[in-house]
């Protein structure tokens, strides 16, 4: 077993708010520079760019995790991670169908670019990815679990799009074992404010929208191998797996 340094919240050029400089080459170059062992691409409500970024990561010996940042009906952001592409893809299709129907308007929200492994533009995603799914927070958690994924409520200390901002509390739910806090948040201060959240593992990521932000937030995981299942074990302090911020 060993420590793996991971930044599991990075936006690609597909996210309307993500910079067009977030190409696979630039993302992986920065990840390498920051000595990350694992990264996840987590675009808003879509995994359409995951496979391409995975190719670039693999060529550079960085373990790639399939991820997505889902926006629930309550406008809560939830990171979700998957080990198996088939399951991830099936989930992604259902998620896409569940998005409220609205076309993206790039002049207001930004471009949504799907690319191929040569960094060519394949298409522009037409549906507005900044919109919400019709699934509630708890439905999202259940569905992610059903597809073998691991869901982590995102940036819970943030004043926008977080479970604490939208609901004011974290519903008791057996599928949640970890919460993401923003990179500048002190876990100690956070827990003194919310002592009842001590039972959760707190992880940090960069939530990078620009290349220079990659690796500016990270968590280290003590694992047998770099997989989502092992990360989940670490967050539950299971089988000697653990995390360190």
């Amino acid at each position: 077993m060993r420590w793996f340094k991971a930044d599991l919240h990075i936006h690609s050029v597909l996210s309307p708010c993500g910079s067009l400089q977030m190409s696979p080459k630039n993302v992986i170059k920065k990840a390498k520079e920051k000595r990350l062992d694992m990264i996840a691409i987590t675009d808003h409500n879509s995994m359409a760019n995951c496979r391409v970024y995975e190719k670039f990561a693999e060529r550079n010996d960085i373990k790639f995790i399939y991820g997505v940042e889902i926006q629930s009906a309550e406008e809560i952001h939830i990171l979700s991670f998957f080990d198996e592409w088939d399951k991830a893809q099936e989930f992604d299709n259902l998620l896409y169908e569940s998005l409220l129907p609205r076309k993206n308007e790039p002049e207001f929200f930004g471009d949504q670019v799907v690319i191929d492994e040569h960094e060519n533009i394949v298409r522009m995603e037409e549906k507005a990815l900044i919109n919400s799914s019709v699934w509630s927070f708890e439905e999202v958690l259940k569905k992610v679990h059903d597809f073998g994924g691991f869901a982590v409520p995102a940036h819970v200390d943030a004043t926008s799009f977080s479970v604490l901002a939208q609901l004011g509390f974290i519903p008791e739910n057996s599928f949640v074992s970890a919460l993401e806090i923003t990179k500048k948040c002190s876990a100690e201060k956070f827990l003194s404010q919310y002592p009842n959240l001590r039972k959760y593992a707190l992880i940090k990521n960069s939530d990078a929208h620009y290349p220079e932000e990659i690796g500016s937030g990270f968590t280290e995981y003590y694992l047998q191998e770099p997989t989502v299942e092992e990360i989940m074990f670490a967050c539950k302090n299971f089988k000697n797996r653990k995390i360190k911020n």
Partner: peptide, 26 residues
């Protein structure tokens, strides 16, 4: 809720909210 406003608000209305995210302006 942004999605609610997107689908239902109309020109001429004042939007009263406690949301402060940049997407509010969009």
């Amino acid at each position: 809720l942004l999605s609610d406003v997107m689908g239902n608000a109309k020109a001429g209305q004042v939007w009263i909210t406690i949301m402060r995210h940049l997407n509010v302006i969009a």
